[in-house]
Amino acid sequence: MAEAKKDILVVSSSPHLRREENIPKIMHNVIVALVPAMAASLYFFGLRAILLILTSVLSCLATEYVFQKARGKEITLADGSAIITGILLALTLPPSFPLWATAIGGISAMALGKHIFGGLGYNIFNPALVGRAFLQAAFPVTITTWTPPLTMASVDTVTTATPLALMKFEGKITPYLDLFFGNISGSLGETSALAILIGGLYLRYKGIINWRQPLSYLLSILLFGGLFWLISPSRYPDPLFHILAGGAMLGAFFMVTDYVTTPVTPLGQWIFGIGGGFLVIIIRLFGGLPEGVMYSILLMNAITPLLNRYTRPKVFGELE
């Protein structure tokens, strides 16, 4: 009798509308969205790409397990967040990067980037980028030693420059088609704009990410890159090059859209994207490094709490 009544009328506190989403479901969708980029890295850099991704993911999972065990917390390896951090970290590394150093990157990503702050949801900075920043500071030479993709004709070259480095240090521009499909040297997962775009559109289709964050970031790169290009087309590359080269696409779809480390309010997300794009252009054109996506996102991560506070929408009827 009581059970029948339950079905007719459910008395509960709000929220009354629930979505079928939870952390594992979202994370598993992100992993699916990363498959095209991983497939592209396998195609362009061979089996070594898989080795790097596996090493990175395993070291992230192990670190998460150790920290959660030591702190007596629930073990949440299955929610996929550590796997995503591992994949993203590997995708930002050069193909010839040593495996032991990749493991150090995975450990520092999870330890310094995530669990020091209290785990998923409490971290200020994108864990994968913290791991990469640590590796960049620890092994500055190794992490900027690039090998050409298998599909590149020249067999005898051992190392080669990325399109951004070619642009910055030699003034050479790489053809758009190569940039778009990924037939260039660079980090594992950032070379093929097409593969990342497929993954990003899948995430948008599934409703996991909003259009605002990647779009504001990419538009800002277009805008500020275009501004400098208009000032002096012979000195600065055109804006489309900025979008397609380096990690701009990977950052825009998989890091600027991170739930934890980016603003929650629409206005804050616009500011985050525009500021990040501005920093990318400034670092690429005037900084010491050829690439600025990692630091642009980390710097914007740092002001995300401020953005959240100052862009909080007013409660209906709230007075100044």
């Binding site: 150090i104 310094l112 500071a137 620890a138 092994f139 500055p140 190794t142």
Partner: peptide
């Protein structure tokens, strides 16, 4: 391969933080 970061200022912060953390633990 030396970890350049460890002889830079961030290395000092990381190491000290980890030592203090371990001792508190």
């Amino acid at each position: 391969t030396p970890w350049i970061v460890m002889i830079l200022p961030p290395g000092a912060f990381f190491t000290l933080g980890i030592i203090v953390g371990v001792i508190n633990y």
